[in-house]
């Protein structure tokens, strides 16, 4: 059992309702209209420069909405050590903005000094479990905060993977005290691409570990005889993913839920429409008449 899990007692918990990604194209409208949102999520890597405008916007957003920092570059699954400079940049941002939620991925992107800027598949073994736990513990120690780790979308399965992905995630959280960010679109994409049952995957996740949910759209491509789901975050959430979301929150209860739309980003009202749909599902899951999954 983890010995110390950093807490953020002075930061209020995020309501179990929907948030959206912070896009500069929407900032002016967001600030003017101030729609009800549980949180706004950004990639901290976008705020690690010295430039003024990104921070000027983020500071105003932070006065209105709780922030969620969702990292993409920590490479928790790299065989080598974590990038200490990147950890330091993270810490500086945490101290400045005190985000309510902090998250990263069960994936890797760096080999030596080369950063590949994608979330690459990790073989799930006892050795990689220990490695990821060490890296999660180090990140939590340096940031002084509990983090959440997200399940990746995948297009291939390494031959050496011996631990089911859901069990791997639960074990990382159990050993380190981190939480889980459950990306339900990623579960569906990975399940379809790799031939497993998304419901069986979700059933293995202990609900109390889940602190945030991501919902997103994906594309379907055909390459020769192969049909693949591509996690492009470029469309509305599909019906299959909405079904899995409703079933999941019926079982574990509602959670802060991000509508993740990063490609072909639509006008703000479209994002807010998706957020409203997630909120409606959350309200229904809390209703005394809600069906038990």
């Amino acid at each position: 059992m983890h010995s110390q899990t950093p807490t953020c007692g002075s930061i209020p918990p995020v309501p179990a309702r929907a948030g959206i990604g912070g896009k500069p194209a929407h900032y002016a409208e967001l600030l003017a209209a101030r729609p009800p949102l549980a949180f706004v999520e950004v990639h901290p890597e976008n705020y690690m420069g010295e430039g003024g405008p990104p921070h000027a916007y983020l500071e105003v957003i932070a006065e209105i909405y709780p922030l969620s920092f969702h990292g993409v570059g920590m490479s928790l699954g790299s065989s080598g050590p974590l990038d200490r400079g990147h950890l330091a940049r993270w810490r500086k941002l945490i101290d400045r903005y005190e985000p309510a939620l902090i998250s990263e991925h069960i994936a890797w992107s760096r080999v030596g000094e080369v950063c590949l800027h994608d979330l690459l598949p990790l073989p799930y073994t006892d050795a990689t479990l220990k490695l990821v736990c060490r890296h999660v513990e180090e990140m939590q120690l340096v940031l002084g905060r509990r983090i959440l780790v997200e399940n990746p979308s995948s297009y291939i399965t390494p031959k050496d993977s011996a631990i089911p992905e859901a069990d791997f995630m639960v074990e990382v959280a159990t050993r380190t005290g981190c939480g889980l960010l459950l990306d339900i679109n990623n579960v569906f994409v990975s399940a379809t691409n790799n031939g497993f049952d998304p419901r069986a995957w979700l059933a293995r996740i202990s609900g109390h570990l889940v602190q945030e949910i991501h919902l997103a759209g994906h594309a379907t491509i055909r390459s020769g005889e192969l049909e693949l789901r591509i996690d492009d975050h470029g469309s509305p959430v599909c019906d299959d993913v909405w079904d899995l979301y409703r079933e999941t929150i019926a079982r574990i209860g509602p959670r802060p839920t991000l509508i993740e739309w990063d490609t072909d980003v639509p006008e703000l009202p479209v994002l807010l429409g998706e957020a409203a749909r997630a909120d409606a599902a959350a309200a229904l899951s809390e209703s005394p008449h809600a069906a038990v999954a």
Binding site: K23, P24, A25, H26, Y27, A28, H43, E45, N46, G49, P53, P54, A56, Y57, H70, V72, G73, H105, H117, L119, E150, A216, A219, I230, D231, D232, H233, G234, E260, D262, T263, D264, V265, P266, E267
Partner: peptide, 21 residues
């Protein structure tokens, strides 16, 4: 992005945890 950034000129840096189409 395919949509113009805010009038102040602020624009988004290049990371996202998804596939680019």
């Amino acid at each position: 992005t395919r949509f113009p950034s805010a009038s102040s000129g602020a624009s988004e840096t290049a990371t996202a945890c998804c596939c680019i189409r």
